[in-house]
Design a binder for these strands. Structure first.
Lengths: 327, 327
DNA sequence: ATGAAATATGTAACCGATACCATATTGTGT
DNA sequence: ACACAATATGGTATCGGTTACATATTTCAT
């Protein structure tokens, strides 16, 4: 691999001049410019990122910390982040935190030690104190944090309202809201949205909590429905629990949407594929990731942020777990 | 951030001694050892990976090049790789190649420029010449390459045989094999396995090709089935196309498994969730990723590889797209 | 013509490690 | 006690860039 001094030698200039040329900093004469261009071409020279990082204390790596790439929500997000990073010449390190605070801290340590340019974080912990110390550009994704860093989220309240209103419009009269783990703020907001609509109607409503995975959700919902047979509409705060609900209802020998209607939240691929296919409040996951990556890169490159936080409106996708007509 | 020389100063030794201590190379006296330990503790010192990389021309980063993390097969794989990397103190850069040769090359360039310790590659291209030049530790994952590098794959032929035999045992008499894109070697092998079983039976068989995504698969299979109504068993070389098949059959107003039985290949999550749930040849995806990562790290750390290639046997999971009893 | 400003370029310190080489000290066999 | 090996440690070049500073040349207004 050729180095900057190889280029300098071939172009008969100093390394400083080559460096100035590469970074477009300071003056470089026309002749030198040409000579350097030729030398770079000839040697097939690419500057060493590592050396550059050591010198500038900044690499072209972005850290992406998410709970678990296996969770169907995150692949698309990761893809969006990687695509955007790629477009701007950055590279992505993938970190699965498992929502484990220690692991998350460890990643912070590792990433800063690599002089990453920035971090995109989907976390339930309020790492406030940690961040401040680091002062690396950062964007919170999907789940708003307490501390004041730029954030990209879906409009959770609005989405929940959409879903709840839709269920009511389709004739549901006794609603169950399946919330996610209470540590997750976005889930809390979705429950809030649900409540806001509910309080405007003289309607029977229930709220339960369940983790975001189908198996557990299925069990919990199964039990709850068994003891509450009046329920005829479910708003699940995640598609995963919606799918769990679907299975639970099947097991109870009830049918969807005739006996119980379901609206999920997230818009993961799987929702298309289950049957009946899932009516859901779809987040624009790709857009979320893209927005976060762009915001981060803007920060990194010192461009002013027009918005310190972005809130993307979700869209209700009507599929088969809700009725076609108002009953 | 404290540096090695801060530690040296505090411990009243030279940086060389600290370095020797850190890397356990060369002699370090007992007194120095203690002093250094204390200094490190006190300063909360962590060696700079970047500086180390520059010096040794090797980082603790592993590059993972896959076609697309959105493809449901890869999240679990990526997770396995990341987990294993984490366990051994490595970090993973995620690269989505989109099976685009240029993009893949670009990633190779970027990764080597970062002095990555090794690369795990799922590619259809035979980058032989590129690799040789780089001579970075490398492992081919899932899709065997022509060139001779360590490889981790599922036993595709065996899996296909399992599936085909199973369909025949369950009474299918006219089989359709839905292969993947012909550039993908694993898909070719699955078709081969299919053929090997078929030729032992006096059975009607068809082979078609379809990309690995449901929408397209659905269309292609729909058309094919319409013109070939005798078909009563489908072996799809991917779960994605199996799910496509499922939908196509529904559209034709036929039922699964009564009219047509289906066996997929891959064992992705989604297969559990569709209804009827998918009988499939499940790859042990996590194990694949883990094995690949371990092999790579062994190479990196100069440990001898006991096997230059690992072939993991898949397992047939019987669910609802095949009949319970032989007809 | 002249001095200030703008342009052009080179030297060398620095980023934070590693590792080669030289030197000093200790241990061991005879 | 002496030679020689083993142990312990430090100095410093090096990895491949960036950048502050010094110096040289050109441009240009007055």
């Amino acid at each position: 691999m050729p180095t900057i001094s190889d280029v300098a030698k071939l172009a008969k200039v100093s390394v400083a001049t080559v460096s100035r040329f590469l970074n477009d900093s300071g003056y470089v004469g026309k002749k030198s410019r040409e000579a350097i261009k030729k030398a770079i071409q000839e040697l097939d020279y690419v500057p060493s990122e590592v050396a550059r990082s050591l010198s500038t204390k900044q690499s072209d790596i972005i850290g992406l910390i998410i709970p678990d790439i296996k969770n169907p929500f995150f692949p698309e997000l990761a893809r969006a982040v990687e695509d955007t990073a790629f477009e701007y010449g950055y590279t992505v390190i993938l970190c699965n935190s498992d929502e484990n605070e220690l692991k998350e801290k460890h990643y912070f340590q590792t990433l800063t030690n690599k002089y990453v340019a920035g971090i995109i974080l989907t976390s339930i912990f309020d790492q406030g104190t940690n961040f401040k110390k680091l002062k690396i550009p950062m964007v919170a994704l999907d789940r708003p944090l307490e501390i004041n860093i730029p954030t990209v989220t879906t409009n959770n309240i609005e989405g929940a309202k959409l879903a709840t209103q839709f269920l009511i419009d389709k004739g549901a009269t006794s609603l169950l809201c399946v919330g996610g783990p209470k540590e997750i703020r976005s889930s809390k907001l979705r429950v809030e949205g649900f409540q806001e609509i509910i309080k405007e109607y003289p309607i029977d409503s229930h709220i339960i909590e369940s983790p975001y995975d189908f198996e557990t959700a299925e069990t919990i919902i199964f039990d709850y429905l068994k003891h509450n047979p009046t329920i005829d509409g479910i708003f699940a705060c995640s598609d995963a629990s919606a799918i769990g609900a679907l299975k639970a209802i099947h097991k109870l020998n009830l049918s969807v949407p005739e006996d119980i209607q379901i609206v999920g939240f997230d818009g993961i691929q799987m929702g298309k594929v289950v049957s009946p296919s899932l009516t859901t409040v779809a987040q624009n996951i790709y857009q979320l990731g893209q927005a976060a990556a762009k915001m981060l890169i803007h920060q990194i490159e010192g461009k002013p942020l027009e918005n310190t936080s972005v809130c993307i409106n979700p869209k209700l996708i009507e599929r088969e777990t809700t009725r076609k007509e108002r009953t």
